[in-house]
């Protein structure tokens, strides 16, 4: 039932012979396990998911939930096909059984060096533990899955940086206090590291009596720092994304080409100030 390979590299090319495709798959690194679903399997899973019991629903339901970390059961309730266009989207996959694109795909990502445990990509959830076991067992290939760890809801704490901090993550009201990491409203691991970097370098400069380091707005590290420090009535946690970089000044339709140019410009700007 499951097959391995990562999105886009696994899919059979339009002109590709089945034999060549099989050979290519065999040589690929087996980093993801993919569980294809047909329409019927998807619909069964969907029904169970949206009717499953959650923990302390009343407590968090009214609160704001960050889109990038939204519980799968809440996303599912937006519409029957929402998951198929989100974390379960089958684009880039060919089901080895049918050589066709499946109706939906659940991806499992390797979680440890030895490859003994896998996490369900995009399946952050607030279902009760028993319900997680019951509902996720409807996913083909997971009928007898052993859950090493269940999904949990957790609190996220962040300050209103858009008012409180400058673009070096320094508290405007007291220049000897800095904030770093997710408490500033940067969202994600690498983003947290990036804020720690900006703060670390700036603290060094401050103690050495040098000027503060404001990273260029066209670098990702600078764009994030600036986003966080820009007044914003509806301030929400922010991931790294190309939307926060200034535009190129030329129109490029192909997104990959555009992102490539934005990235080139960022690296160039960073090298210039190093």
């Amino acid at each position: 039932m499951p097959f391995t390979g990562n999105r886009y590299d696994q899919e059979r090319g339009k002109e590709e012979e089945i034999e060549d495709w099989e050979k290519r798959l065999g040589s690929q690194e087996a980093s993801y396990i993919n569980l294809p679903m047909n329409k019927e399997e998807y619909e069964t899973f969907y029904k169970e998911l949206v009717s499953a019991e959650v923990v302390t629903l009343h407590e968090f339901e009214k609160r704001e939930i960050f889109e990038g970390c939204m519980p799968i059961e809440i996303m599912a309730k937006r519409g029957e096909d929402t998951l198929r266009f989100g974390p379960l989207k089958p684009v880039g996959f060919t089901d080895p059984r049918t050589t066709r694109r499946p109706y939906a795909v659940v991806q499992l990502r390797q979680d440890d060096v030895n490859g003994t445990i896998y996490n369900l990509v995009g399946f952050q959830t607030n279902l009760k533990y028993g319900e997680q076991k019951r509902v996720f067992s409807h996913i083909p290939g997971l009928a007898n899955a052993e859950f090493v760890k269940y999904g949990v809801m957790h609190r996220n704490t962040y300050i209103n940086s858009s008012e409180l901090l400058d673009n070096t993550y320094c508290l405007k009201k007291n220049p000897n206090i800095y904030f770093a990491g997710q408490i500033t409203g940067v969202e994600g691991y690498v983003e947290s590291i990036s804020s720690g970097m900006v703060v670390g370098l700036n603290v060094v400069n401050k103690l050495q009596g040098k000027e503060k380091i404001e990273f260029p707005k066209n670098t990702m590290i600078g764009a994030l720092a600036n986003y966080i420090a820009t007044p914003n009535e509806k301030f929400q946690p922010m991931n790294a994304n190309f939307g926060i970089l200034p535009e190129l000044g030329e129109r490029i339709k192909d997104k990959k080409v555009k992102y490539g140019k934005l990235a080139d410009r960022a690296i160039e700007a960073l090298n210039a100030i190093k």
């Binding site: 407590e59 939204m70 996490n119 995009g122 269940y150 949990v152």
Partner: peptide
């Protein structure tokens, strides 16, 4: 506010 983490299987 609140957000969530995904389960892990063997």
């Amino acid at each position: 506010f609140y957000d969530a983490a995904a389960p892990i299987v063997s």
